[in-house]
């Protein structure tokens, strides 16, 4: 059974005359694979990511993740499910400016199952990502590459079964992009997370054994 399976998904977007519907007849991702979803701007990449995360609700169809159809869950249940099972690395990192690097990472496990060792795990991940001496710095005191690594640590801190990365290299240079992707893949593999990277960067696409174009998914 695939880890993620989308069937007959439809999401109506926009309002008034400017409406369109994102339709995904079928899409599945096996457990433990590394996959790249590619697509141009406006192809629906981010909408699909938000649907899988449960940030927005589907209008039709089903999204089954780890044997749970999240379209059947209430919003609060989807929030809880996301907190415990899904990690996301955003293109703009989405770090909270008032929190230190370590606190930002700890926030990744703040709303799911209560665990007492979050701080220790955050420290381990940051050290692993070369930020041992930057843990107590605020995001604005970090370089762009360092902020990206904090975002990676935050996505991994709750040991999610699915790790989603939305254009993770869009805001970093080539050297940092390669480093981030290597670290992301290594850490995901280590903790058994399935990795889905959404990108339009061909260089990133080349790093992965499997890729799928969004335009082939949507109807």
């Amino acid at each position: 059974m695939p880890l993620l399976e989308i069937t007959n998904l439809a999401k109506h977007l926009g309002s008034g005359e400017e409406t369109f519907t994102l339709r995904v007849p079928h899409f599945s991702v096996e457990r433990g694979v590394e996959l790249v979803l590619t697509g141009e701007s406006g192809s629906g990449k981010t909408t699909l990511l938000n649907l899988i995360c449960g940030i927005i609700a589907a209008d039709e169809g089903s999204i089954t993740l780890d044997a749970t159809d999240i379209t059947k869950l209430s919003e609060a249940q989807r929030d809880r499910f996301r907190a415990e099972r899904i990690g996301v690395v955003y293109q703009t990192f989405n770090l909270l400016q008032g929190f230190t690097a370590k606190e930002n990472v700890m926030l990744g496990a703040a709303f799911g199952k209560h665990t007492s060792n979050t701080a220790k795990r955050a420290e381990e991940l940051l050290a692993r990502l070369g930020l041992a001496d930057r843990m107590n710095r605020k995001p604005r005191e970090l370089s762009v590459g360092q902020q990206q690594r904090v975002a990676v640590a935050r996505a991994l801190v709750a040991a999610p079964i699915l790790l989603l990365a939305d254009e993770p290299t869009a805001n970093v240079d080539a050297a940092n992009a390669a480093r981030v992707m290597d670290e992301l893949r290594a850490l995901a593999k280590e903790q058994g997370s399935t990795l889905v990277v959404i990108t339009h960067d061909d260089a990133v696409k080349q790093m992965f054994p499997y890729s799928q174009a969004i335009r082939d998914l949507v109807a």
Binding site: E75, A83, N94, Q97
Partner: peptide, 16 residues
Amino acid sequence: RREIAILRSLGARRST
């Protein structure tokens, strides 16, 4: 708003 959206994306409920 962005901070609130980030917290929500991390799993914080509306009630939180």
